[in-house]
């Protein structure tokens, strides 16, 4: 167990991918442990619902590992996995006969999943209230705007990786992101929240 934890921290994704390709199960486990929470969070932010997010994240991890053999080791794991999550989210919407673009997520439910890891939660109450308002506003954005905000301003993906995940030219990333940020700002103003 200790060695597995150490490996989690030390090995790069690429090393783990190589070991996983060679059939090492503990390398696969380390990759799963490293990336599954990100997959879950992206799904949660897109769906607003914990159970759905867990289903999608598990399916995405399954798909990730069953396609591992065709995974190009020059690629990075996170954008690849996020692409899978995004497709699974769309599949779920399709199964529920919901078209991308016509649904919002439950902002209260999403904000309700926020946790406070600060050392002094009471002193940080105002900040946490602010986080709740911002995520409620994020929930009201269209999927296209929400996903780009989430990828950049929560998961901290580079423009390159965002272009990869969203399958858009890199030049489009900046303009779409800026449009989303402006809309989020407007929604916050609407809600009387100036950040």
């Amino acid at each position: 167990m200790t060695s597995a934890v150490a490996r989690d921290d030390e090995a790069t994704d690429r090393e783990l991918i190589d070991q996983a390709h060679a059939g090492q199960r503990d390398a696969q486990d380390a990759l799963a442990r490293r990336h599954r929470q990100g997959a879950f969070l992206l799904a949660l932010q897109m769906l607003g619902n914990r159970d759905d997010a867990m289903d999608v994240a598990q399916d995405a991890m399954l798909r990730f590992f069953t396609t591992l053999d065709s995974f190009d080791r020059e690629h990075r794991v996170q954008p690849w996995l996020f692409t899978i999550v995004r497709n699974q989210v769309r599949d779920l919407w399709r199964r529920r006969q919901r078209r991308p673009g016509d649904g919002l997520v439950d902002g209260e439910a999403l904000a309700g999943q926020l946790v406070d890891h600060s050392a002094n939660p009471e002193a940080d109450l105002r900040r946490q209230q602010l986080r709740k308002s911002v995520w409620r506003a994020v929930a009201t954005l269209s999927e296209t705007k929400r996903e780009i905000i989430v990828l950049r301003d929560f998961h901290d993906l580079s423009y390159n990786d965002i272009a990869d995940v969203l399958k858009i030219p890199i030049g489009t990333v900046m303009s779409r992101l800026h449009g989303a940020r402006k809309q989020l700002k407007a929604k916050l103003k609407e809600g009387g929240r100036d950040v």
Binding site: R25, D29, A32, L68, D69, D116, R131, L184
Partner: peptide, 27 residues
């Protein structure tokens, strides 16, 4: 706004909520 979102933390599933093993690769 970016500071607010990027510093947010959400409840994530505990280890036992995930399948115990990573799924096998195709090979």
């Amino acid at each position: 706004v970016r500071k607010v979102t990027i510093s947010s933390a959400f409840a994530t599933p505990a280890d036992h909520e995930w399948p115990a093993e990573a799924p096998r690769s195709t090979a």
